[in-house]
Design a protein around this nucleic acid. Structure first.
Lengths: 203, 203
DNA sequence: AAACTAACGCTACATCAGTTGCGATTGGAG
DNA sequence: CTCCAATCGCAACTGATGTAGCGTTAGTTT
């Protein structure tokens, strides 16, 4: 109903086969090693079909990314904001360190830096993640652990940013201690009232 | 003497011409639009020569990156750690927002996510930047603004990370206020003693 | 169940990134 | 000044990526 005019049957099968093949190829060869021909061969779908429906490598990435965005992920609930924040950041870290999941996630980041469509898809993905993760901050505010003017999304961003920065910008290793430290830093800033929401009427 | 066996004369001219052409092409078309043929044509050097000496697009990037790493950049000295940190983060922000410099810098980040050689080059680049920037933290410690157990490099990382995170991971816009807030957050964390150097004997 | 048509498979082709072999230049050594 | 080797320019070639036309398959409609 939504995408094409023939949602059921072969088209759906083809779509699913290509998606799976894309994820598998990403896991094995990363984004730079992702080629339409290999995905076509692996999925059993013909090359031309992939080009027609997805347009090329960028389309494959965007599609796979939307798929990944649908899966919810476990937001920690340890009872304290410190534990929750650390849990989130560790989840990020371990996700990229995982030998199976890491390459796929990294491929998404790599793709988004190159292709505008993938960038939009990743933007939406992270917007959803931020929204889900903000829950731990809202709970902390409700418990009185944080001032209620705090910008929940910003706390999450500041907490996870150093991990991504090390991984994809500075290309440094990320230890568990680094992750905890980043979470603690965000928490300290939030407690200090630095990460407050913007006052109404600011451009 | 250092690189090849014929440092002077034509080889040097070729090298310089290609470097300039690479930077110009990066500014215009970004990393994904960087092609050896265009660089060759623009520099007046033959395609084959570029492939021989640089090996391909990755080599061009790495070379240009080393060149960029040599240029020192102005570390702020406002008299207070707050002003200095904000200055650094704003410098990062404005650098990527600059219509001329931004695309080139972004291209470096994009290249490093794809190519291991570029990743190493960028790693070294940021290691140098962190070292230079750490000076503002050391001055703050000397002034008594921060505890002397603070990890200077980590303060810098936490300060700039949110800007890079927004730009290259979440693909969100970055306002001046966002930059200031990130700097302030790092400072609050440093003051709270969260960003201390690792105790000796930690894996 | 017969007709209709969207979507797919296939072959052949076009295009472009990257390579190879050889001759021409050019910078440096004796 | 002369020779020599490193480097570059050139043209032809190879392989991979992406496209076009056309016949075939398989959902969908009546």
């Amino acid at each position: 109903m939504e995408t094409g005019k023939r949602p059921g049957g072969r088209s759906a099968r083809v779509r699913e086969a290509v998606r799976q093949a894309t994820l598998a190829e990403l896991a094995e060869h990363g984004y730079s090693g992702l080629t339409v021909e290999r995905v076509a061969e692996r999925s059993g779908v013909h090359k031309t079909t992939v080009y027609r429906r997805w347009g090329g490598v960028e389309g494959l990435i965007s599609d796979a990314l939307e798929l990944a965005g649908d899966e919810p992920w476990p937001v920690p609930d340890t009872g304290s904001i410190e534990g929750d924040l650390r849990g989130i950041v560790q989840l990020v870290r371990s996700g990229f360190a995982d030998p199976e999941l890491g390459p796929v996630s990294s491929a998404f980041v790599a793709a988004a830096v190159q292709d505008p469509a993938a960038a939009r898809a990743l933007h939406d993905f992270f917007a959803a993640r931020h929204e889900q993760s903000a829950e731990v901050v809202r709970r902390a505010v409700a418990r009185g652990e944080l001032p209620d003017v705090v910008d929940a999304g910003e706390v999450i961003r500041v907490a996870v940013a150093p991990v991504y920065y090390r991984l994809f910008v500075a290309h440094e290793p990320v230890t568990e201690r680094d992750a905890d430290r980043a979470a603690d830093a965000a928490l300290a800033a939030a407690r200090a009232g630095v990460l407050s929401a913007p006052p109404p009427g600011t451009a």
